[in-house]
Design a protein around this nucleic acid. Sequence first.
DNA 1: TAGGACAGATGTCATACCAATTGTTATGAA
DNA 2: TTCATAACAATTGGTATGACATCTGTCCTA
Lengths: 239, 239
Amino acid sequence: MNPFRPVKSGKISGRIVQQIKGAILRGAMKPGDRLPPERELVERFQASRISIREALKSLETAGLLTIKPGSGVFVAEINSRPMSESLASILRIRRTSMNELTEARMILEPSISRLACERMSPGDLQKLKGNIEEALAIIKSNVSARVKNIEFHSLLAESTRNAVLALTMKTVLDVLKDMSSGIVDNSPKNIEIASHTVRHHRKILKALKEKDAQKVYELMRKHIHQIQGSLKKAETDHQ
Amino acid sequence: MNPFRPVKSGKISGRIVQQIKGAILRGAMKPGDRLPPERELVERFQASRISIREALKSLETAGLLTIKPGSGVFVAEINSRPMSESLASILRIRRTSMNELTEARMILEPSISRLACERMSPGDLQKLKGNIEEALAIIKSNVSARVKNIEFHSLLAESTRNAVLALTMKTVLDVLKDMSSGIVDNSPKNIEIASHTVRHHRKILKALKEKDAQKVYELMRKHIHQIQGSLKKAETDHQ
DNA sequence: TAGGACAGATGTCATACCAATTGTTATGAA
DNA sequence: TTCATAACAATTGGTATGACATCTGTCCTA
């Protein structure tokens, strides 16, 4: 191997990305912090504005920066959207079905819910209770509470106090939200389904309060099984 | 709500991104396909080269395009790296520990392995066998087989034939690879650990061959429990 | 206090030139 | 003649510069 390394390697913007990314990840800059203006970065990095802008654009797409026209460039708040969009793109290219997504939930969610049951605080229970009440209110006004009901599962995953599990589950649920958002809503049937879902969530919440982790596991299994059922039904109805 | 929509909304590059992304996701362009040169896109979109390049750069960061200097812009092969990098960034910013990551594996992998056992083909078994043999060969030459051993788990997840599960697991394992890559390697202790890991994988492979899904579940639990143990040990050693 | 002027920031554009890749053509040896 | 190889030209992405447009927040004035 050659022991020498080119003085300049790869694209300029790439090197700039590395430096800024490094500063953010190592904690030298925190969410909300503002970066120097582009023209100042030009001098600091001794690069053209084009290269600076490409680096910033790339970091924005990666979710590490937020660029506000006329205002400045800021370190972004932590956000899992890029992750969700990435997964969503891959699944759409591969023509992945909703069934496959639901099957994944069937494998992931019962175990996650069990852990959540063992870990969750009274505050977490309160959030879940609030979610159910909000869902009921939405349904009362004859609107489907699909998004709110998905949020229930997301909150539950967060209760595990495990960032990896929470983010993973949130990502999958975000994709679910995207995929199901194109489907007709607010039809009487959908409202009925949403209402049924809330009843399931109530039962799960009850088991969570009782700290019955195994029961939570089983209820979540049944809940997702029921979702699979109504998916199959919707498919045959469409044919 | 206002029934009118602005004729031009948002940034130009954003609108170009939408169009190209749409074409890729809807399947109008497939991986490997080549896009027209930048200068031609300038005419087609009636935008400046700057805007075109920003759009392309963004799509490259998102993992949808691959830009080859002097050659052209191509629709990228499906790749989960952007997803992994996104998760890795979030976890590093939040100072997430390796323990948390391993705990997530403890929740996810047993269930996934059980499903894999029920679904996998003889070809999948062959791949796992090949992985173990390669790992052994690496260890024989006194090098740690850490990466190869992580690959075992990734292959197992792919055997579920469920893209969501496979991608999710691959993402988590990629982050693991990143986080553990900074740690000293090839020390006698690490080689011993890698060797121990391969023994575990052998047992799991045996249960997979026997189609004993429940046993696979239990073995995977024990395996990850052991990993947690050696992590804790490493921590106290470092103190 | 409302509104406008202003300064500073990002967004866009046109043009030119650099660097890497590719395909072609010319050249020379077998 | 044929084929390998080297030189070259065309194509394509990368970088640089300067100018102008548009957005945002602030300060100042009516």
